[in-house]
Structure formats: structure tokens, C-alpha cells
Design a protein around this nucleic acid. Structure first.
Length: 293
DNA sequence: GGCTTATACCCAAGACTTGA
DNA sequence: TCAAGTCTTGGGTATAAGCC
């Protein structure tokens, strides 16, 4: 049962674009916390049969095969002592296999982003019978459709995994804000930088992104953290890291570390008091050696 | 139709931080 | 000190919906 819920979760988190079989196995294999099954052919067939019997899932055929899903670990190069992401090379953005194509004002209440929302073909009736029995084994289905086949969770299920168990399913979000939330869900534990969202994925000005993000913030659907990247040139770039609440992790950033240092310095002083000038001098020394600022 | 209100967007200015 | 990058805020405008 745990394996089924984890699989449904991964399908739903992928959003309105849906997930191809290859991407699903990849997501399950790299899931945190770990997926309880080894994703080998036997398990794939078992999961396929289970998924085809889920009324909350639909199956679509894309006009062309989707490129493989590649994941980049944002925290691979993070310096644990400083909380700063140290990029040793110029960042090369991966091709976005989920370019933003927002669905607006859909009469059926569908929200999200989907590149082929109007072009893709619903083949659910071919995949399973009306009483939810699979018409194909996984091997046969994959041989026939390959990575053109995508599995898409219902609007209700997709919304539920984004807002979490404690979220209000009756809360109506504007389409733009929903798409931001969907993007954060797809980013899982990595989160998304606000700068990347407005300058890259959504291609809107910072003000508009802030306006739509504010809806999510006010409804308590996302968490935000300060995020600092040191570029190969040595320059530092500041941005805000956005995450779904369910994927929130407390990461110590530069300012947290400075506050901790300040706190420990005061604890060591008589009566926990010190002049501002002395504190500043010591913090500057600490910053120079540890934070290189 | 006229008024009010809410929503959405654009744009400019300002705040903050950093590096040169 | 200045420029650059990022984020925030507020003013102005357009549009739609609701009410009288």
C-alpha cells in the first residue's frame, strides 16, 4: 500500500503535464524517503497493473516522445560551513522538458501547465476496460507507445499533493499562482529560486512573479528561504528559495550562521554584554575567514 | 447607465547587498 | 562611490462583476 501511495504521489507531483513511464521509474528510484520496492521489471509490471486500476489516473498519448527526465542537485556544491552554494563552473541550465504553457479559465476546472494540453490524445479507454482492468501488460504498452505515453493524475489528486493533508481543498487559486505551486511540486526537495521562475520558466517581470507568489505565501502553501550562490567569478547572487511546505528543510544560510556566531559571542561575554564595535570587529574577522565576505 | 469594488497588470522607484 | 542584480512596493490603468 505504501508503494502505491508513493507512486500516486509521484504521478500527481509531476503536474498536468503528466509523467512518462521512464520518468516515473526514475522518480521512484530517486525518491526521498526511499521507495520501498526495487524498481525492476517485475515491480514495474505490478505497479503498472495497479496504476491502470486507479480511477484518479488518466492516460494520454503525446504527439512526440518526451525527452528523458534529468535531475540536478542544487545542494551538491553547497558549503555546509557557510550555507553558500559554491558554483565551480558556469551554470548550464538543463533543457526544460516541462516548458510553461499555462491553462487559463478551463471550464472543467483544470489548472496547471501542459505543453500539449490541446494536442495530446486521451487513450485511457485503450489502456483499461470500463471495470478498471488493464488491457496491456507494461511491456506491451511501452513497446507500443514508449515515452509518448503519459500518466496524468486527476485535478483533485494533483491539488491535494500540492497543498498537503492540512490544506483547504476548497481554496481556489488563480491559474498563474497554481502553476507556480505546480512547479514547486515538481521541484520536490530541490525547490525553485524565485529568480529562475520569473527570468527563466515563466518569463515575467519580478513584480508580476511577486504578485502571484504572494497569494501562495498568504495562504501558507509555500516556504521561503534566503539563498546565496557564489559564482565562479566570486560574485554572490542573492535570491529566494521557494518550496512546498511538505518539502521544507531548514537550511542554514549565511545570515543564520552570522546570527548563531553573534549569539555564541554574547554568551561568552560577562553578563552577555559587549560593545557594538567589538562585536562588529569580531564578526568581520569571522566573516573574512569563514564566509569570505 | 453610473458607481463601487476587486482583480490583474505594467512600470518606476526604492531597498538591500555585492563587487569593482 | 557607483553599477548591477534581485526583490518589494505603490501608483496608475484596464477590465469585469455586482449593485442601485
Amino acid at each position: 500500500m505504501e508503494a502505491l501511495w508513493a507512486t500516486l504521489d509521484e504521478v500527481a507531483l509531476e503536474g498536468l503535464d503528466g509523467i512518462t513511464p521512464g520518468a516515473l521509474w526514475f522518480r521512484l528510484a530517486s525518491r526521498v524517503p526511499p521507495f520501498p520496492l526495487l524498481v525492476e521489471p517485475g515491480a514495474q509490471q505490478l505497479l503498472w497493473a495497479t496504476l491502470t486500476a486507479q480511477p484518479d489516473l488518466s492516460f494520454y498519448l503525446l504527439p512526440r516522445a518526451r525527452a528523458p527526465l534529468l535531475l540536478q542537485d542544487r545542494y551538491e556544491e553547497i558549503d555546509l560551513e557557510t550555507g553558500i552554494l559554491e558554483t565551480k563552473r558556469d551554470p548550464v541550465p538543463l533543457d526544460d522538458i516541462y516548458p510553461v504553457h499555462m491553462v487559463f479559465d478551463n471550464i472543467d476546472g483544470i489548472q496547471g501547465s501542459c505543453q500539449y494540453f490541446n494536442e495530446r490524445l486521451n487513450i485511457t479507454d485503450k489502456i483499461r476496460t470500463k471495470d478498471l482492468h488493464p488491457c496491456y501488460t507494461y511491456a506491451d504498452a511501452y513497446e507500443q507507445w514508449g515515452e509518448k505515453l503519459v500518466i496524468v493524475a486527476s485535478q483533485t489528486l494533483r491539488y491535494r499533493v500540492l497543498i498537503g493533508c492540512e490544506g483547504d481543498p476548497d481554496l481556489k487559486l488563480p491559474d498563474f499562482s497554481y502553476c507556480i505551486l505546480e512547479r514547486l511540486g515538481r521541484a520536490r526537495w530541490q525547490g525553485e529560486l524565485q529568480r529562475d521562475l520569473h527570468s527563466g520558466a515563466f518569463k515575467v517581470d519580478a513584480g508580476k512573479m511577486h504578485y502571484h507568489r504572494r497569494v501562495l505565501d498568504r495562504n501558507g502553501l509555500i516556504s521561503m528561504q534566503s539563498h546565496v550562490i557564489r559564482l565562479p567569478s566570486g560574485a554572490q547572487q542573492h535570491s529566494i528559495l521557494l518550496l512546498l511546505n511538505r518539502f521544507h528543510v531548514d537550511r542554514r544560510n549565511k545570515y543564520d550562521i552570522l546570527m548563531e556566531k553573534l549569539s555564541s559571542m554574547l554568551c561568552d561575554r560577562p553578563n552577555q554584554m559587549e560593545t557594538l564595535a567589538n562585536l562588529r570587529e569580531e564578526l568581520v574577522r569571522f566573516s573574512f575567514f569563514k564566509l569570505k565576505i
